[in-house]
Nucleic acid binder design. Structure first.
Length: 510
RNA sequence: GCUCCGGUAGUGUAGUCCGGUCAAUCAUUCCGGCCUUUCGAGCCGAAGACUCGGGUUCAAAUCCCGGCCGGAGCACCA
């Protein structure tokens, strides 16, 4: 080996290249081929013949940006490999994660908007009998038992790794107790269905886990039809089998579910889907978002609703003029890493800006307006392009000797300064309190500071931002842009959401 | 406490499985400059990273061991 290497060292690279050319030219080609990074999502193993994937939210509020990631990535894989994309509502807790009846539709709407229309929609609360069937079969096979330990007692058993007395009940006894649970022979907390795993499993989180419990409170969708409700691991395990799910994308918080559910799969003779975990996502501008916390804040009146621009929901993004394509591209670029990530809205904004810039008409909006009197021959009408680069025509803005400018622009000026009023004329400042100026020519001059302005009879505009609100005056044409995204020059992009006095716009981004 | 999973520029991300093409990709952000009748767009340029320590090897971001840091689970929540 050492000999070979010292020989290699003696030759020049060029010499070796020549030798390689004669020996194996095909290897040389290989050298110059740079592995192109695969665009989009990483390949899924075992996806060659199509996939069945599901996104399984609890409908206790509308989709957030976190949900959007799940919707987009799952649906994108289905687009990529063919197959089926399923939305499954895991709404099996009538109390602690009480579903919101409206939220089911909200999810479907937002999926549609995100270009992720599901091929199938499943609602767990409508399929409880299916879970009962599996429960009974599992009991018959000796894979589950009715545990009547008090919660705290079982917890101790679990920590110490010792089975409780109920673990040895025969299937017949368990079947009888199960029936008693269903029939109302037990009250809440008195009995629970437990899946047998291994009380000596080294990870305590895996030991005999609960599969179903008694809840007597009415469920918002099915009322009091059921008094025994499955827990997530049980419901989800069964559904994934019934739906023939091939790949599960699962948050790291559910990382133990696979290990737990595999005991059930083994007992039932089912094949477990492939699982990919991903980390938690946080957004700088919003922090982490839990639907329940949001719900509480909205109910407390801290926000105007689920589409308040300060809130990280898909509907809020929609109202702010974020395009679904921007969200898709962004989420797909994130990939499916297991690390927890903390991202900035700036990246989404940058993506969105590329999409909306060419389509957005430009308008003047003056925030914190201050009146400016101009002496001289100011044109009565300004003609400004709707877009600086795309020929889409012009907007006409009444001007004249009295207009409005931003207080902050005025504050940066002093008497004697010359400034360009965009698309109108030049002026020379002659006074500040009150603000006065003198007409100073119509032709633009190089290097002159340029500010925008608003007409005396403009429309009142209120911009709601994630970080507050701005009020001011805009040109009248803004009223023609309801529902569209426009750019307020030198301010940023906004979506015109409501006409009226004032017109309400949601801030999109700079 | 027990168990599991991560750690590449400010933020994300590619590369890690199968060590050499990596003086490490792309995006975003930031900073210069140009251009522009917007502080938008565009163009040019710059800066910026392999968690640490050992080991294996001719060669380590990549393999092994240990430390540190971070996250998660151990609910009759999802």
């Amino acid at each position: 080996m050492g000999e070979v290497l010292s020989e290699v060292k003696r030759g020049s690279p060029e010499e070796w290249q020549r030798r390689l050319e004669t020996l194996a030219p095909e290897l040389l080609d290989e050298l110059s081929v740079h592995k192109e990074p695969e665009k989009g999502l990483p390949a899924l193993e075992g996806a060659e013949n199509g996939v069945v994937m599901r996104f399984a939210p609890n409908p206790n509020g509308p989709p957030t940006l976190g949900s959007a990631r799940g919707i987009i990535v799952n649906s994108e894989y289905v687009k990529k490999y063919g197959g089926k994309f399923i939305i499954r509502f895991d709404d099996t807790d009538p109390v602690k994660k009480r579903p919101m009846p409206e939220a089911y539709g909200w999810y479907l709407e937002d999926c549609e908007w995100l270009d992720a229309r599901p091929d199938e929609v499943i609602i767990a609360s409508e399929r409880v009998p299916l879970y009962y069937e599996v429960a009974e079969e599992l009991i018959r096979r000796g894979g589950a038992y009715i545990c009547r330990c008090e919660q705290a007692v079982f917890k101790e058993h679990k920590e110490k790794g010792i089975p409780c007395v109920h673990r040895d009940q025969t299937p017949e006894e368990n079947l009888e107790l199960w029936q008693k649970m269903l029939d109302g022979g037990f009250s809440e907390g008195q009995a629970v269905l437990r899946v047998k795993t291994d009380m000596h499993h080294k990870d305590p989180a895996i030991r005999d886990w609960p599969a179903a419990r008694i809840v007597t409170a009415p469920h918002p969708m099915v009322g009091t039809r059921y008094r025994v409700w499955p827990l997530l691991d049980f419901e989800s395990a069964i559904e994934d089998h019934l739906l023939k799910t091939t790949h599960i994308l699962r948050g790291k918080d559910l990382a133990d579910s696979g290990a737990r559910q595999k005991y059930l799969y083994k007992q039932m003779g089912w094949t477990y889907p492939r699982v990919i975990h991903w980390g938690r996502i946080k957004i700088h501008q919003f922090g982490s978002f839990s639907t329940s916390k949001l719900r509480a804040a909205i109910e407390a009146g801290e926000y105007t609703g689920w589409d308040d621009p300060r809130v990280p929901t898909v509907r809020a993004m929609r109202c702010r003029g974020i395009r679904p394509e921007a969200l898709r591209k962004f989420m797909i670029d994130l990939g499916v890493g297991e690390t927890d990530i903390s991202i900035s809205m700036d990246s989404i904004y940058a993506e969105n800006r590329k999409l909306i810039d060419a389509d957005s008409n430009r308008y003047f909006f003056v925030w914190n307006p201050v009146a400016l009197e101009i002496e001289g021959d100011v044109p009565a009408l300004a003609r400004a392009p709707l877009h600086p680069a795309v020929a889409r025509g012009f907007r006409e803005i009444p001007a004249g000797n009295k207009i409005f400018v931003c207080q902050s622009d005025l504050a940066a000026l002093k008497v004697g300064d010359r400034v360009r009023l965009k698309d109108l004329c030049n002026v020379e400042v002659t006074g500040l309190e009150p603000a006065r100026a003198l007409f100073a020519g119509r032709e633009p001059e190089k290097k002159m500071k340029i500010i925008h302005w608003a007409p005396q009879n403009g429309v009142a505009v209120r911009v709601l931002r994630p970080d507050g609100a701005d009020e001011g005056i805009g040109e009248a044409g803004i009223a023609d842009e309801l529902g569209r995204v426009v750019q307020f020059e030198r301010y940023g992009f906004v979506r015109i959401n409501r006409l009226g006095d004032p017109i309400t716009a949601y801030f999109t981004h700079k």
